[in-house]
Design a protein around this nucleic acid. Structure first.
Length: 211
DNA sequence: AACGCTATCAACCGCTCTCGC
DNA sequence: AGCGAGAGCGGTTGATAGCGT
């Protein structure tokens, strides 16, 4: 059968609870990753891609749903500053959050380009609202931030600054590939950093000797 | 109440990457 | 080394809930 035929026969659109249940059972039986097999054996008439997406974003254990906390928002903003649109990497630093969720959150809450989408004309009272939401990306209005949050942000700010310094040491200036992929060499360092901070080493001076 | 518009988010599409042959 | 298949990723679309007029 031609690929096109297979494609057109595949079911699309929103998943029903019973489909979720079937998919969950199939993943338990065949293992996560064998999406072609799961697609075929489940009888759901869903593509492997569709099964994978549904599992990864909604059915996987330990998925966290609902509103992003202030800390999560803050982390997304800062990691985006560091990593760009590397949604899977950013999501990897947010336990229970998926790349799709992070991406959607960024596009709807934090990305000011998003507001230009569509055929907009009428910009009325909602504009102020929209702009205040977009403003989160740029700054933190003092009146909405507690002392504890300020302390956290300050610590994160210095962490980010330290990481950014790492991106441009003089010895790296002659490495052209870093202009396109400036973060790759330090991704493992980020992982290490998280490991250290989880064991109580929280300041840059404590961590730096190990890097 | 009805309509129009916006915001949100689940899902799809197409491209790239990885791996086995 | 080259090719094909499958998996993964980021960008985009489309449905719809909710709000304002």
């Amino acid at each position: 059968m031609k690929d096109k035929d297979v494609k057109t026969r595949m079911k699309r659109g929103f998943w029903k609870p019973e489909e979720d249940l079937i998919l969950k059972n199939c993943v338990e039986t065949h293992g996560e990753g064998n999406w072609a097999t799961i697609s075929e054996k489940s009888g759901l008439m869903r593509s492997g891609k569709s099964c994978r997406l549904r599992w990864k974003n909604y059915l996987r254990p330990n998925i966290k749903r609902g509103m992003m906390s202030e800390d999560e928002k803050d982390l997304i903003i800062r990691l985006h500053k560091l990593l760009g649109n590397r949604w899977s990497l950013i999501a990897g630093r947010l336990p229970g959050r998926t790349d799709n969720e992070v991406k959607n959150f960024w596009n709807t809450h934090l990305n000011n380009k998003r507001s230009c989408r569509g055929k907009k004309k009428h910009v009325k009272s909602k504009e102020a609202n929209t702009q205040s939401t977009q403003g989160k990306m740029q700054e933190y209005p003092a009146e909405t931030v507690s002392n504890q949050e300020v302390a956290t942000k300050t610590a994160l700010d210095s962490w980010i600054e330290e990481m950014q310094d790492l991106l441009s040491p003089p010895t790296m200036n002659n490495m052209p590939f870093l202009e396109d992929e400036p973060f790759i060499p330090i991704l493992d360092d980020i992982v290490l950093l998280e490991a250290f901070t989880s064991t109580g080493k929280e300041t840059w001076n404590e961590i730096q000797p190990f890097l």
